[in-house]
């Protein structure tokens, strides 16, 4: 399975970036072999569309699953439309640690974006 991770650096021992769309690198890891590919996140400095762009690039690179920490609402819409599941890494995990944790079934699946879109506030009951 291919796992897309938003990362602070270009290799598998880099930290998972707390930012999703504005992380400097996108790393795609094969969860069976732990082989990986790192691409520069071209969306990181966009004034708008960073979230949708990063999601698209991760999907284009073949990600079946995405691991991040925070995923914004527009990026979330894209991942949902393309039926890509999203899991949350713990802060301070490296990309490798996050994928290992995912393989062991230890990562929590994310079911909603980090910040609700403006004007559509979620009400928690």
């Amino acid at each position: 399975m291919k796992i897309g991770v938003t990362a602070a650096g270009a290799n598998i021992d880099s930290l998972v970036d707390e930012r999703y769309a504005r992380a400097p690198y996108l790393i795609i890891v094969d969860s069976d072999t732990m082989e990986f590919k790192a691409v520069v996140n071209q969306n990181a400095n966009k004034t708008s569309g960073a979230g949708t762009g990063a999601s698209q690039d991760l999907i284009k690179e073949g990600s079946d699953v995405i691991i991040g920490i925070n995923v914004g609402p527009k990026a979330w819409d894209v991942l949902k439309e393309f039926e890509v599941k999203v899991y949350r890494a713990k802060k301070g995990m490296t990309v490798k640690e996050a994928v290992d944790a995912f393989n062991r079934g230890e990562l929590e699946e994310i079911h909603e974006p980090s910040e609700p879109p403006e004007g559509h506030e979620h009400h928690h009951h």
Binding site: K46, S48, G49, A50, Q56, D77, F82
Partner: peptide, 25 residues
Amino acid sequence: GMCADACEYSAILVARKKLMIFDEL
């Protein structure tokens, strides 16, 4: 996917035989 590649604002996305448009972007 040429349209998506041309879009500077990631307002149109194409992957896996699906296409999405974000009008507000």
